[in-house]
Design a binder for these strands. Structure first.
Lengths: 344, 344
DNA sequence: GTGAAAGCGCTAACAC
DNA sequence: GTGTTAGCGCTTTCAC
């Protein structure tokens, strides 16, 4: 029926409602026999605590809100970014019997701050997971902070000792990718930079330079092209780079969409991949695996990051603790078909 | 501060809390001057009604739950199906100041029925949107029905006069696609059937036959291949069909992933698209637009369907009405690069 | 049109 | 260990 209340359970078990509450919330100070008694009554009546009543009485809900910039406002197709965030957050939520509310929003909306504040004040979530690039917008972070709701910033792209954030080792793994390309014999490795709004993406460029240095290769501005993270930008960059007097033999793009653009441009020009050109991306989005040739890329641990974020939030609520600083979830390289030995 | 309560507003406006409640809930029987008065106090105090309190008192929440089979359990990459459902549902929710809770689940889980019942009884959502293929699983529908929460079935694949569902005109539009291929001069049009679990997908096969008939073409079992909706299945089917003594000049797949498989197999065999072979899909998923050549396909109005579903649910709550029967949202054909005139 | 009172089903604070 | 008593901030019912 789902209509049984805590009173019904208390009556059936012959205890007070407070004891039932203790059992339901796994609080200590209940004799084992009493606990069993109550648990029996609960399953007998098929009792489910009413979340609204709990929320009202405890001043918080069992809801985690995942806030992210709505990609469908820019992208024709889904890149899987959001899905993976959701998946990770859901894993943490369901493990703790919490639920996930999603809130895609328009980063460019003037009223976004008020909108988010309104949302949070009405819902009073147990915690908020704020995905990049929202997580590095000061006014957004400030607004959320002002509500008093616990929150985590995902890949904020900068150190923030005051708050809690979950990030990945972008720079280190980009260096690793660069070294991997160098180890294949490539000596002219180009880089396509991404949209500067995603601060974290900036680390990749730094990592690229680290990797060159580590491999004893010289950095050259000529081999760096700035894109805006789109497939079209990748095509444009590839056209420019491949038209160079001494074109690169490998192109490392700061995200997968641009790498896909490179592959497209190469196909159009009849440049063989990986025979004549190696291509590497970053993100491991859905396209990376589906395109031909499959893209060598850096696997962003998005799900793991979102899971860590949500889990920390829930832990803080339950243990009355407070996470702070930055938790790093490590990314890894996925070597697929788009990279190979440099042409001799 | 978000700490203002209805009492504070009432005090400031010099009215009773009931009047404030009336204004907030847009109930009638409030004098205009009083209403303005209250509204002023509300914005003065930046008052936001506490959802938990509302839910508790009114026995329902402002939450819509979107329940779907979790594709990440099968797919490596996201197809965009889920994103589009979410997008549509969110549009309806936010328009009415409702929020969306997502609940991907495992269709094969033995305990799914209990899991869903538990979820619903705890959350007491205003309504539930049940996506295919869950929407055509009797035990799931029965379980949800038993909770008493209003729900909508998305593309249940069968008539159900008793409940409310939102569907698309799969059969008619598949016939249209077939006629379109015939109009390009194709006379041997193959069809790749999909996974029978998605009942709605079965309609596409019927539509294909309709289309053949409409175009004066003869149906042949030889030109029909059964797949399981995966890219690999499409490749397999294409290999079989293109090895026929008299191969088809057009292949219509019951979903995009299989159509993509066909394109891949064709590329491998050096068969030109659309020069030597036309390929059409169904769904318009993200791959369809990104693959080269871009796929001619049927655009499933997933977002519009989910939006219609959520909007109806909310309308029912607010107007105390009850939708039933089937609402049809029309699909349409997207002609892109993968189809062209039949080879002469 | 407006208001007073009585809960909704829980948790929190404290008493026992 | 366990129970009692107050609320949490709203909506509902019904009186005026």
């Amino acid at each position: 029926m789902g209509k049984a209340t805590i009173d019904d359970v208390a009556k059936l078990a012959g205890v007070s409602i407070k004891t039932v509450s203790r059992v339901v919330n796994r609080e200590p100070n209940v004799r084992d026999s009493t606990r069993e008694n109550v648990e029996h009554a609960i399953s007998e009546l098929n009792y489910r605590p009413n979340q609204s009543a709990r929320n009202l009485a405890s001043h918080r809900s069992r809801l985690i809100v995942l806030i992210y910039d709505d990609p469908s406002l820019y992208e024709v197709a889904s890149s899987g970014y959001v899905t993976r965030l959701q998946h990770g957050a859901l894993r943490a939520c369901h493990a703790a019997n919490y639920e996930l509310l999603i809130y895609p929003c328009n980063i460019r909306s003037r009223s976004l701050v008020d909108e988010l504040r309104g949302l949070i004040e009405q819902i009073r979530p147990a915690g908020i997971v704020l995905a990049a690039p929202l997580s590095n917008m000061k006014r957004i972070v400030k607004a959320i902070e002002s509500t008093g709701s616990p929150f985590v910033q995902l890949s904020p792209g900068h150190e923030d000792r005051e708050h809690f954030s979950v990030a990945t080792n972008d720079r280190a793994v980009s260096a690793e990718m660069t070294r991997y390309l160098a180890s294949l014999g490539h000596r002219r490795i180009a880089f396509i930079k991404g949209n500067p709004r995603h601060t974290a993406v900036g680390h990749r460029f730094v990592g690229y330079k680290d990797g060159l240095r580590d491999s004893g290769l010289e950095y050259s501005d000529e081999l760096v092209y700035a894109g805006d993270n789109s497939i079209a930008a990748g095509e444009e960059a590839a056209d420019a780079l491949l038209s160079l007097p001494k074109p690169p033999t490998a192109i490392f793009a700061a995200n997968d969409d641009m790498a896909v653009g490179v592959i497209r441009a190469a196909a159009r020009r009849g440049v063989e991949i990986p025979g004549q050109l190696s291509v590497a991306g970053c993100d491991d989005n859905s396209l990376a695996q589906q395109i031909y040739p499959a893209l060598t890329t850096i696997r962003q641990p998005l799900a793991a990051m979102a899971e860590a974020a949500a889990a920390s939030l829930i832990e803080d609520v339950q243990q009355a603790t407070h996470h702070s600083g930055t938790e790093v979830v490590e990314a890894s390289i996925r070597i697929r078909e788009s990279t190979g030995a440099a042409p001799s």
